[in-house]
Design a binder for these strands. Structure first.
Lengths: 231, 231
DNA sequence: TCAAAAGTGTTCCGCTTACACCCATGC
DNA sequence: GCATGGGTGTAAGCGGAACACTTTTGA
């Protein structure tokens, strides 16, 4: 079966930049390509958009197909559309890139269709990447670093219940600089949407910390009231 | 001539949301469609991307072709890519939307290929629009209102030399609220990249105002130094 | 009792805000 | 001389930044 059009068309793909955080670093999910071009090279998960398929749906589908990762509560947002001719050696391929923030421990990854392998890589120590994916990742990193300062998106990188130290570690990792513990705690709690669950950590070899959660409904309420955060 | 592919492909277009400002209002450039679908309906200028053509180049080309407007110093930025199936009644068409800020008085618009007419419309009083263009325009407006507060993009809406009153009018129009004259002037001049040209207005029936300009090189310098603006 | 991280207040400074009158020009 | 917008300073309050020690727990 084949399809014929009156005018030539660029091909359309989606790519996904999935960020995760562990105790050490910011990580990104990559797949090792099983097919040409760039066979054996690491790349962002992604693939062709089907006719009649929404772009976000396509991004989620490709991600699930290639890495087994299903985004549920994760944060997913369109990043940018990359369409420079020559970014794909085969032909003109335009890619709509998305980025997601997930809690690494909630998700098991496994390679599947079109991917020889799939695993998390430290953002600070990436392999060579296929296509213009190094560039896409750079743009995604800038967006993440910029947006986390004025939108509460970072919570998607943490477990549902987290300590303020974990949250502080998140901001320090993303912003690339240390922040003052007392001021950080004061500010976060003053925002009003980081709420104490009343619970504490268990099984830690030290004084257990209080567990907090992100109250999304409260955040939306404050947002409607014209409130603004700035970290 | 025709083109055959192994798999069906969505079509790919670009659309441009061009904002301009006059003494009264924020305006947007629309074209009246000369062809089907939506013949006779007003729409954003735009059209199909050629194979091998960069997306930004395509956006500029369609804009020039349909409205005669050539963006030179104007601000142009990718907005978002809209790909919901059904947004075009003919078939699945994915559109990469861009937005631009121009100084209305620098540009003459005239309808050309595919456009029966082309003119500026008040953003507050738009006609019914073709496709999902009302939605695209709404997204563009949100982006503009958000971004103008932390990036000096508004200057593209003004002549090269402008008075502080014009600049204040710009911010009041975009933000939708009045601002204090003395505080506004203090802040703008304190930023360091709005500089006095030493000239004044001519031919005004009142005391002439000083003319300022946006010093982009200075802005870039400050940006590198980690400076941040917030209006 | 030691190691490790949790938790907690105050002071100072700079920026934002609120606010009203005189000035220069053209008609 | 009048109408129109141009141009200017100060005081008060608030939020951000700097800063160090005590507490709790498990080993």
């Amino acid at each position: 079966m084949s399809f014929t059009y009156r005018y030539a068309r660029p091909a359309l793909t989606v790519d996904a930049v999935v960020f995760g955080l562990d105790d050490e670093d910011l990580k990104v999910l990559l797949v090792e390509r099983a097919g040409e071009p760039f066979r054996g090279t690491w790349a962002l998960p992604g693939g062709f958009v089907n006719v009649g398929e929404d772009l976000e749906v396509a991004a989620r589908r490709e991600l699930a197909e290639e890495t087994g990762l299903r985004l549920a509560d994760a944060y997913l947002e369109q990043l940018y559309t990359f369409g420079a001719p020559g970014r794909d050696p085969r032909e003109h391929v335009v890619s709509c890139a998305w980025y997601a923030l997930v809690n690494i421990r909630d998700h098991e990854v496994r390679a599947a269709t079109d991917a020889a392998d799939a695993r998390w890589w430290r953002v600070q120590a990436l392999p060579d990447l296929a296509f213009d994916h190094a560039h896409i990742l750079e743009v995604a990193g800038e967006r993440l670093r910029g947006k986390v300062r004025y939108r509460p998106i970072g919570f998607a990188l943490l477990p549902e219940r987290f300590t303020l130290s974990q949250l502080q570690h998140l901001y320090e990792t993303l912003l690339g600089r240390g922040v003052d513990k007392r001021n950080f705690r004061k500010k976060m709690l003053a925002l009003g949407f980081v709420v104490d669950t009343g619970e504490t950590e268990t099984d830690v070899p030290r004084r257990p910390a209080r567990l907090y959660r992100f109250d999304e409904a409260r955040y939306r309420q404050l947002e409607r009231e014209g409130f603004e955060m700035w970290v």
